[in-house]
């Protein structure tokens, strides 16, 4: 049973979307903490560049492409849910987004496997510690987003709770934006 409180909109936007924005605000400071720590260490230790040179820009770039594309399908799902009221189409597009997340994780797994087998482990150098930690926290958000989207898509396919397609999309775009910053920070800066 949804309380009456949940249906009020004194602040001008639906409660659920407002809450998602607050969740993102709290995520910004979590990623901000990691990235600020990484940045100040990285700028203070120019010699880390030697380690960073070993990252594979092409894999990072491919993953950026995958996430950007999955964001596109997420926003198209939102469009289908909101403007076409087409839950089935929205669910299909969300399925594509989940697929994108899956490809992202597979590529990441392959990349990490290669790096670890070449001796670049989380313990080998502070750069790699930050590399695996930042990307790992991000990857856990990707997994969380995929699980959430699976639930939302299941409902949306039955035409239920269509507004959630937008909410999970906002979260997914945020995960995308984080990666947009992680990509140059971890891969390009040499």
């Amino acid at each position: 049973m949804r309380p009456i409180a949940n249906t009020r909109t004194a602040a001008g936007i639906p409660t659920a979307r407002l809450a998602v924005w607050w969740v993102l605000a709290s995520e910004i400071v979590i990623f901000g903490g990691v990235l600020a720590s990484y940045l100040m260490q990285r700028m203070g230790n120019p010699d880390w560049a030697a380690e960073a040179a070993a990252t594979n820009v092409w894999i990072g770039a491919f993953n950026t492409f995958v996430l950007l594309t999955s964001s596109l399908s997420a926003v198209l799902a939102h469009h289908a849910a909101e403007h076409e009221q087409d839950g089935k189409k929205a669910a299909r597009l969300l399925g594509l987004t989940i697929l994108g997340g899956g490809i992202f994780l597979c590529v990441k797994g392959f990349e990490w496997y290669t790096e670890i087998s070449h001796g670049m482990t989380i313990q080998s150098h502070p750069f790699w510690s930050f590399y695996y930690t930042a990307a790992g926290i991000h990857a856990s958000h990707v997994i969380a987003g995929m699980i959430l989207m699976a639930f939302v898509a299941k409902d949306a396919a039955k035409g239920l709770e269509l507004h959630r397609v937008e909410l999970v999309g906002i979260y997914w775009h945020f995960v995308d934006v984080v990666w947009i910053f992680l990509f140059p920070l971890l891969y390009i800066a040499k």
Partner: peptide, 24 residues
């Protein structure tokens, strides 16, 4: 909410220092 994020990040790093062998 706006201040706890860096400490959550720090707690993850500290936990990894304790258990995984990183040296943040």
């Amino acid at each position: 909410m706006a201040s706890v994020g860096p400490l959550i990040a720090g707690a993850i790093m500290l936990f990894m220092d304790q258990n995984i062998g990183t040296h943040f």
